[in-house]
Design a protein around this nucleic acid. Structure first.
Length: 414
RNA sequence: GCGUCUGUCGUCAAGCGGUUAAGACCUCGGAUUGUGGUUCCGAUAUGCAUGGGUUCGAAUCCCAUCAGACGCCCCA
């Protein structure tokens, strides 16, 4: 036998028995997002590498070590690791800033990140997400979070935790970063390896290190004081407190998490995540926030924006399995021609129905029917002569013989 | 990139140095049931991820490789 070729590491087939669940995720997304005024956009799977370098940020791991990049005739191309950069690119390229604000776009599709797979993490995975352009007011942040919660509710997920934080604006955040670096400088050599690299790359990330020795350092009074100081400027603070008041009024439960720092460079002010305790260590189903400078950084006009993305595989793992649909009926007959004809008549009327293409023995056909369908439609010689069909309910074993044209009235179509 | 654990039929598995490598489900064939889903028979791994070793003897021990799971980093 020839060698079997297997799926690539970190990728998965979505098999027929799971596809029903995916349909549900997609159907609810369309329905709920549309209700909030969002329109779907589909951008290409690959983009110029530079888009992600400039968009997502070249200090991030996503860009530094997780991109699928390849060269084609002097162009550097990358499989999208996330979709915000692509949507922003399209927003700019198609002149959407001329549309009346807000411009609300949603997407779904595969993303690619070259990482070690583990629970809730694959190399090809799927996200649904939304992006809203043109509104700087915190109402937009609140509505985006509301939408996320609403969507999750529509899927029956009510008990998830919403965490929020404000990163401030580039200006006040920079000051905060510098203060942290300053106060930690004497301790630099005592920090763990990861923290030492974070010290330069993203000082905000230092704070939730799990290494004991680092934790102890952060507990020192003079350091703790700096870490816990409210660094954000007056304007940012106002924005944040308004957001919280909207969330309160809308009855969205949330907790504030000062350590919540999203890893993508483009965020400012509001960041949030929605987490579940049933996901293993990759416990965020949703992550997002405000990114007011991204559009400008990618060459567009200054345009405020908020957005979020959800991991569809993670969502799916929280949802109960759906039974894949049974057939409405299975035609049983020793005459494959008659079976074929009856099957087609019913299919034209919208019935999900099959017959035995292999023309096996009568009892095997019935066995197949009982396993795959709700009704068996039996046409033996007697029935054919009389132009009738015996309809057997396979749950109750009740059987009636009816005129051929009345079959459809004697079965429930699911 | 690092760490921990795992790898026996399509699936779930028993086996823990000497077995003809259990069993269950699925699938297929047959018997029987006045038309099935009950029951009964039968088929389905010369091989235990791959390659080396240790041993009289290995699925069982050791090493390497590969694959998978989980965790770190990071992220949805």
């Amino acid at each position: 036998m020839a060698k079997i070729i297997k799926v690539q590491k970190g990728t998965k087939d979505i098999l027929p028995q799971e596809v029903e669940q995916w349909h549900r995720l997609e159907k609810n997304a369309l329905e709920i997002f549309t209700r909030y005024g969002y329109k779907e956009i589909r951008t290409p799977i690959f983009e110029a590498t530079e888009l992600f370098a400039r968009g997502v940020g070249d200090t991030t791991d996503i860009v530094n070590k997780e991109m699928y990049t390849f060269e084609k005739s002097d162009r550097s191309i990358t499989l999208r690791p996330e979709n915000t950069a692509g949507v922003v690119r399209s927003f700019i390229e198609n002149g959407m800033s001329r549309l009346s604000a807000p411009v609300k776009l949603w997407y779904k599709g595969p993303m690619f990140r070259y990482e070690r797979p583990q629970a809730g993490r694959q190399r090809q995975f799927h996200q649904v997400g939304v992006e809203m352009f043109g509104i700087k007011e915190p109402t937009a942040d609140a509505e985006a979070i509301m939408l996320a919660v609403d969507y999750l509710k529509s899927l029956g997920l009510n008990d998830l935790e919403v965490e929020i934080n404000s990163l401030g604006c580039p200006k006040c955040r920079e000051e905060y970063k510098n203060k942290i670096k300053e106060v930690l400088k004497p301790e630099f050599d005592n920090l763990c390896e990861d923290c030492q690299s974070r010290y330069e790359k993203n000082p905000l990330r230092l704070l939730d290190c799990k290494v004991e020795s680092c934790k102890e350092i952060f507990e020192k009074p003079e350091i703790k004081k700096v870490i816990q100081s409210d660094f954000i400027c007056e304007e940012c603070a106002q924005h944040y407190s308004k957001l919280k008041s909207y969330l309160d009024k809308l009855n969205i439960n949330y907790t504030e998490n000062k350590l919540l720092v999203r890893g993508l460079d483009y965020y400012n002010r509001t960041v949030f995540e929605i987490k579940s305790n049933n996901l293993g260590s990759q416990n965020a189903v949703c992550g997002g926030g405000r990114y007011d400078s991204l559009v400008r950084n990618l060459g567009g006009e200054d345009t405020p924006a908020v957005g979020w993305a959800m991991g569809m595989e993670r969502l799916n793992s929280l949802l109960p399995d759906i039974d894949s649909h049974k057939l409405d009926a299975y035609v049983v007959s020793n005459s494959e021609t008659e079976a074929f004809i009856l099957t087609q008549e019913l299919r034209e009327k919208g019935v999900k129905v099959e017959f035995d293409l292999a023309n096996k023995k009568f009892t095997k056909q019935l066995e197949k029917a009982s396993k795959t369908a709700n009704y068996a439609l039996i046409i033996g010689e007697d029935e054919i002569k009389a132009n009738k069909v015996s309809v057997k309910n396979l749950q109750t074993s009740e059987q009636v013989t009816v005129d051929r044209k009345d079959v459809i009235n004697n079965i429930n179509i699911g």
